[in-house]
Design a protein around this nucleic acid. Structure first.
Lengths: 210, 210
DNA sequence: CATCAACAGTAACATTTGTTACAAAAACTC
DNA sequence: GAGTTTTTGTAACAAATGTTACTGTTGATG
C-alpha cells in the first residue's frame, strides 16, 4: 500500500503523515458499479482515491437523480469530510465509475491530523475548495445550459474520466444522470449523430469530435 | 466591537480567539445593496456576519444571474474561505440584502488560527459543511423543481431572511435572481395572487400564506 | 401639470422539454 | 430457432417556459 499511497499523495503529505495513513488506513479495491455510499447512511470513513473514479449523485425523495461530479485520483469526498464532524447522514450517493482503488481513513483522524499536520489542513481545505467549485460548475450547467449543451458536457466529462471515447451507457442511464427522460436523450443524441459528432451503437456511444 | 462579537460568536470561540479577532478584525457596517464581492476580484479578507444578511449570487459570462443562498448572523462565506489558501479570484458576487454588520479578518489569520484553535477549525469545517448543504439545496431547486415551486421557495426564503412578509422587489429583480424572464414571474405571481397566497403591489409583494 | 421612465398585466406565439405510444432491432433464454 | 426482454428510433402530442409586443398605471421630475 505504501507505494501506491506515495505515488498519489507523496507530493502532498509529509512522511510522518504518510506513515500514519498507511498504519490506520485500509486499502480497498472496488469494481465498477460498486455502491460506496447511499443517501441516509452514516459516514464512518473518509476515502482517499488512489486510482479509478467515483461518481457522486444527488437524489431527491421522489427518486429523481442527478449527477453532481466525479472524484478522481488525489481527490477526497468533501461532503464526507463535512459530515465527519457533525456525524450527520450522507446527502449523496457515490458509485464507482470504474474499478477503483482507495484508502479508507477512520473519520476520527480527520480532526486529529488537522491539529497536527499543516499539509493535512491544506489538503482538506483544498478539497473543499475544489468541491465547491465543482458544485458551482454543476449549478452553471443546470441553470444556464439547455439540455443539448448539458448532454455535450456530460459526454465530454465521461470521455475525460474514462480516458476512452467509447461511452458505455444506455440512453436511459444518461437520462437518469441528467434528470430528464430517455426519449429526450435519444432525440438529442440522434441530432449529434447527424452532425457527425458521435456514432450511436447499442449500449455504447462512440465520440468522434465534440 | 467586543460586545457584538461576543453576542454572535461567544458560544463558538474560546476567549483567547475572541481576543485575537477583536484585535486584528475590522468592524464594518454596510447598507442594503452594498456590493461586498464581485466576480473576478481577489479575496483578501474573510467576513464574519454579526447581523443582517448577504445574498450570494452566481453569474456566468453572458451576464446570466442566479441566487445561490443567503448568509446570516454567525455565518461566514465558505467560498471566500476556500479562496484564501489558493489566492484565487472570487467565483461569486455578494450583495448586502439589508443593512449588515460584519467583522473582516485578514485571510492570513485563517490558516494561523486553524493550527492554534480547535474551535476555529470546528467553525471553518462547520461553515464548509453548511455551505455545501446550501449548495445541494440550491441544486435540488433548480434541477428538481418547476418554476412555480422555485418561486414559492424564493418568497419563503425572502420572508425568513428579512423577517418581514412584505418583500421589496420588482418582478424584474426576482426574474434575475431565479434566472428567468420578467413576464414569467409576473404570470406566476398573478397565479399566486389568484390563490390568495400573496397580494401584489407596486415594488413589493405582501405574503399572506405560502 | 405635462412628460417621462419604471413597473406590471396580458395576449399571442415560439421553443424547449416532457409524455405516451408503438415499432423495429438486438441480445438473451430456453 | 421461438419467444422474451432490453434498447433504440420516431411520431404525435402536451406542458412548461421563454419571447415579443403592446397596454395602462404609478411615481418621479422638471
Amino acid at each position: 500500500m505504501i507505494k501506491e499511497l506515495k505515488d498519489s499523495y507523496g507530493h502532498l503529505f509529509e512522511d510522518a503523515l504518510l506513515d500514519e495513513i498507511s498504519r490506520v488506513g485500509t486499502f480497498k479495491e472496488v469494481p465498477e458499479g460498486f455502491k460506496l455510499m447511499e443517501i441516509g447512511q452514516y459516514i464512518k470513513v473518509m476515502p482517499l482515491l488512489i486510482s479509478g473514479a467515483i461518481k457522486i449523485l444527488r437524489n431527491d425523495n421522489d427518486g429523481d437523480e442527478l449527477l453532481l461530479y466525479f472524484l478522481e485520483r488525489g481527490d477526497t469526498c468533501a461532503v464526507t469530510l463535512s459530515c465527519c464532524l457533525g456525524e450527520t447522514k450522507s446527502q449523496i450517493r457515490a458509485i464507482a465509475e470504474m474499478d477503483t482503488k482507495l484508502i479508507m481513513i477512520p473519520i476520527g483522524k480527520m480532526e486529529e491530523w488537522a491539529a497536527k499536520y499543516k499539509s493535512w489542513r491544506r489538503f482538506v481545505f483544498q478539497s473543499y475548495h475544489e468541491r465547491l467549485l465543482e458544485m458551482l460548475s454543476t449549478i452553471d450547467s443546470i441553470a444556464f445550459l439547455k439540455m443539448d449543451e448539458r448532454l455535450l458536457k456530460y459526454l465530454r466529462d465521461k470521455v475525460n474520466v474514462n480516458k476512452n471515447n467509447v461511452i458505455h451507457n444506455t440512453h436511459q442511464e444518461i437520462a437518469y444522470e441528467l434528470h430528464t427522460s430517455r426519449v429526450v436523450i435519444s432525440r438529442l443524441l440522434k441530432n449529434l449523430e447527424n452532425q457527425d459528432k458521435i456514432k450511436l451503437h447499442r449500449n455504447n456511444i462512440e465520440v468522434i469530435s465534440i
